[in-house]
């Protein structure tokens, strides 16, 4: 590994019109098609497991999402993973769920994470505790995704806690939220996105997309409302392992819509896993063509090693190489040059 001419853990210099000093916001504001991926958090206290899981994305993604007890299952914390990732220069998206912590704990974590170099935060309500491995847990839901967005925006822009107490340094973060165009009430979903933007969302990552016509009609409404100009929309994708797995997900994971045609296609394939990967590549290529879409968010649960290959074959990055430990892209080195 070649020696870096700068310390990757130091935030990028401030830039006009940007609220964070991270790479993801810069890539999106520069008009590039962004790629993010979800890291499967380990059930472990070993930092090397985090680094191993992150290394498969190196050079292929603009940011890595660290989930916060997704599906209400217990794993290494989002803030812990993000702290480890920023130590070596990765750009994490810290997911914050309202399920497990109240407003006091969350605001404290926002400050702590920002201090450790986390530049992107994704505000979620969170899955119900009933779906996870500890159904007896107390659901907190003191805030919801919307009030969480407002809270962090207020901390950043007004330099105060929710209570009004002042901060001496605000968290410089790029604020994100989730969107699900594939769950009822469909007519209301674009308005809900508008509401999230009003609350502070600057980018959204959507639930898995397996239904292009449904996404297209959602995006048409989003464009009518002009929302794509106020918020970067990253569409969620991922490879399905098999028809059986797809059926299980459809029946058991709330909010994921998989059309029958997709399941039939997998059933008809000789190598279902391969077909799932091919389908994912095709979906990405179709999604890229939809006006108003700014990028993709790849959730390849337990198939993370496929992400590089999928992104490569989809061709969405064109010649662009997101940050890698050993290779610095031109875009970044220019910014570093201006810094020094």
């Amino acid at each position: 590994m070649t020696e870096l001419p700068y310390d990757p853990t130091i935030p990028l210099p401030p830039l006009a019109g940007h609220s964070s000093r991270g790479r993801l916001e810069r890539v999106l504001r520069a008009g590039e098609f962004a790629v993010t991926a979800e890291l499967n958090p380990p059930d472990s206290a070993d930092r090397d497991e985090v680094y191993e899981r992150a290394s498969v994305f190196e050079g292929w993604v603009d940011a890595i999402n660290a989930t916060d007890g997704s599906g209400a299952n217990c794993h290494m914390s989002s803030v812990g993973i993000c702290a480890l990732l920023t130590r070596v220069g990765y750009a994490p998206v810290m997911q914050i769920s309202c399920r497990d912590r109240n407003r006091i704990a969350i605001q404290g974590d926002v400050l702590g994470a920002a201090a450790m170099g986390v530049a992107n935060m994704l505000c979620l309500s969170g899955d119900g505790v009933e779906t996870g491995d500890q159904p007896g847990a107390k659901p907190v839901f003191d805030l919801d995704c919307m009030s969480l967005l407002e809270t962090i925006r207020k901390m950043r822009d007004e330099r105060v806690f929710l209570s009004g107490r002042p901060l001496s340094a605000p968290p410089e973060v790029f604020l994100g939220a989730a969107a699900n165009p594939f769950a009822p009430p469909y007519d209301y979903r674009p308005f809900r996105l508008a509401k999230k933007i009003a609350a502070g969302a600057q980018f959204v990552q959507t639930q898995y997309c397996f239904d292009i016509p449904m996404l297209e009609s959602y995006m048409a409404r989003v464009r009518d409302l002009g929302l794509h100009e106020k918020c970067f929309i990253l569409v969620g994708v991922g490879p399905l392992v098999s028809a059986r797995a797809a059926k299980w997900i459809r029946a058991n994971v709330p909010g994921i819509h998989i059309p029958d045609a997709v399941i039939r296609r997998l059933e008809g394939a000789e190598r279902q896993k391969r077909e799932g990967r091919n389908l994912c590549v095709e979906l990405i290529q179709q999604i890229r063509e939809i006006p108003g879409v700014s990028g993709i968010h790849v959730m390849a649960y337990r198939q993370e090693e496929l992400v590089a290959d999928i992104v490569h074959e989809s061709g969405v990055l064109k010649e662009r190489k997101p940050w890698r430990g050993a290779v610095i892209d031109r875009h970044l080195s220019e910014q570093v040059a201006t810094q020094t």
Partner: peptide
């Protein structure tokens, strides 16, 4: 989830 700004994505 006592959401004051729902519905959630589920």
């Amino acid at each position: 989830k006592q959401l004051r700004n729902g519905p959630c994505g589920g």
